[in-house]
Design a protein around this nucleic acid. Structure first.
Lengths: 123, 123
DNA sequence: AGCATATTCAACCATATAGTTGACCTTTTA
DNA sequence: TAAAAGGTCAACTATATGGTTGAATATGCT
């Protein structure tokens, strides 16, 4: 078998263009999941979700490892970095909202438990 | 005429998924260009390039202004901000809570002035 | 062994996308 | 005023995409 081609920007951006696939990535952000569990919240067939996962895998955004009869899906954030870097070339994001973003992250990472509904409250 | 809907992540990522459109963005990074000049290096019809530019415009990635018979195309890097920040959440911070992040993003995009940062500072 | 579970495969359908060509409208120029 | 230049529109074609269903393939359980 040939070694897999590195994911292209085409594949990464195409994968990200679908809201179902972005939702899947969000789910995998929290934890690794089996295909069936990924599919559960969606109003579409298991086969359809399986296809979406295949597209995400080809794009390098997730990896899939089969243990027993269960195929585990894992977020692979590295693939996003290439695309992110590409985008940075266009953004003069200097002052925009990265300051606010970093403050958000600081709070988020400091105390993920209290982010229920008042993300920006300081209380 | 209705005010244009703000570009969605769908539209931005879909626009970025095509190599021709990414090449166009690269060209516009250097300078504003007329439609005919944008089309010149591509081995496709002017109409096809015109369509690509329309897709980029709907995604908010470029703006188009008609002066005389010439329509000038200008890069609008701000539209990349939302998508880029969305990606950063995956690329760098494993533990980030996406629900909170989405709320942050919604507020940020709705009213950047409210977040207390010096949004337009020239670093 | 036999059945249930987890996942994919294959065939199919509807719609979207990227491209073409030729006609058309508007603006500039001779 | 007539012709050329800059773009878009409309109709069409081919292919890609996202979804379905039913059958097939493994693996695990009793």
């Amino acid at each position: 078998m040939t070694s897999p081609a590195p994911p292209s920007l085409d594949q990464v951006f195409t994968a990200l263009a679908d809201p179902t696939r972005r939702a899947i990535l969000s789910m995998l952000l929290e934890d690794d999941m089996a295909v069936t569990d990924v599919a559960e919240p969606f109003a579409m067939s298991l086969a359809a979700v399986s296809k979406h996962l295949g597209i995400l895998a080809v794009a390098g955004l997730i990896s899939q490892e089969k243990r027993g009869r269960v195929k585990w899906c894992k977020l692979e954030p590295d693939a996003l970095r290439e695309a992110s870097v590409w985008m940075q070339a266009f953004g003069q994001y200097d002052g925009v909202n990265l300051d606010a973003f970093e403050r958000f992250l600081a709070q988020e990472l400091a105390d993920p438990a209290l982010d229920g509904s008042d993300v920006h409250s300081t209380s």
